[in-house]
Design a protein around this nucleic acid. Structure first.
Length: 260
DNA sequence: GCCCAGGAGCCCG
DNA sequence: CGGGCTCATGGG
């Protein structure tokens, strides 16, 4: 293993955590999740720092899975609106989703964008959960769960790992566009690294064992915290606490071809 | 009006 | 395998 790479990954985590604190992911609708009262759903208690017992019901786990699909290539704010709409319509379980025709479901989740695609994906995913059951899924090992999730149409590597990590509470490192951008700029990865390269190399440094669950949880959340406000597409380096050590290998956004 | 946001599938060489 | 296209809303 590359010692320098390992040290870098671990140091960055320590610094991000020291700077931003515990993020308490994943956001959920409401902490008391049994005895669903639709009039009380739709308000967000937000995060739950240092409480790694959340989610503690299958209901909440499923809600997180829905969020993971709804937020694909979409801001969380928009995904949250779609989720709140589902809550007010009392559509939060797999069977409740399957009871709504795809075209009607699409209108309910409209704010999340790509609503036609996503409504179909929610149906397909709900069928999967009904067939496999969250409780039973949890008994499989991580790679088995991952393989099953990746076979579902609409579930790619990031969504699969988000589901495993935040809904099923098992350590599977989530890589997203922010993670790539941050690591490339900082100088510890290159443009040609694929999803599995990142996940494999990071998990070699921080092994996917139960003890490391909080670290997996926070690391991904911290990178997003950092990238949303500071290491943006156009970075604000003068405000960045990593300004001195960063390699600043900027990704130059490709210009879109103009329609004519 | 333009850019961007916590991806994934499909098609084609 | 890898680039390019499609899917779409809402906020800055």
């Amino acid at each position: 293993m590359n010692v320098k790479f390992a040290k870098c990954i671990l140091d960055l985590y320590d610094q991000l955590l020291a700077t931003y604190g515990h993020q308490g992911w994943w956001p959920i609708l409401k902490l008391s999740n049994n005895g669903v009262n639709p009039t009380e759903r739709g308000t967000f208690t937000g995060y739950h720092p240092e409480n790694y017992e959340i989610p503690n019901t299958n209901q909440t786990s499923f809600e997180i899975m829905l969020g993971a699909i709804l937020t694909q290539n979409t801001s969380w704010v928009n995904a949250e609106k779609a989720l709140a709409n589902l809550a007010t319509h009392i559509i939060l379980s797999p069977s409740e989703i399957l009871d709504i025709p795809i075209n009607e479901l699409a209108q309910i989740i409209r704010p999340s964008g790509y609503y036609n695609q996503k409504s179909e994906r929610l149906h397909i995913f709900s069928e999967f959960i009904l067939k496999n059951r969250i409780t039973r899924l949890k008994k499989l090992n991580i790679e088995e769960i991952r393989k099953k999730l990746l076979q579902i149409k609409g579930i790619g590597p990031e969504t699969a790992d988000s589901i495993i990590l935040y809904a099923l509470k098992k350590p599977s490192f989530v890589i997203d566009a922010y993670t790539r951008r941050f690591f490339i700029r900082f100088g510890i990865s290159d443009n040609d690294w694929k999803y599995e390269d990142y996940r494999g190399k990071i998990q070699k440094v921080i092994p996917p064992i139960p003890k490391n669950l909080p670290c997996y949880n926070e690391y991904h959340a911290l990178i997003i915290q950092h990238c949303v406000h500071t290491c943006k597409k156009t970075p604000i380096c003068e405000k960045c606490f990593l300004n001195e050590t960063c390699a600043k290998k900027f990704i130059i956004p490709k210009k879109k071809a103009k329609k004519r």
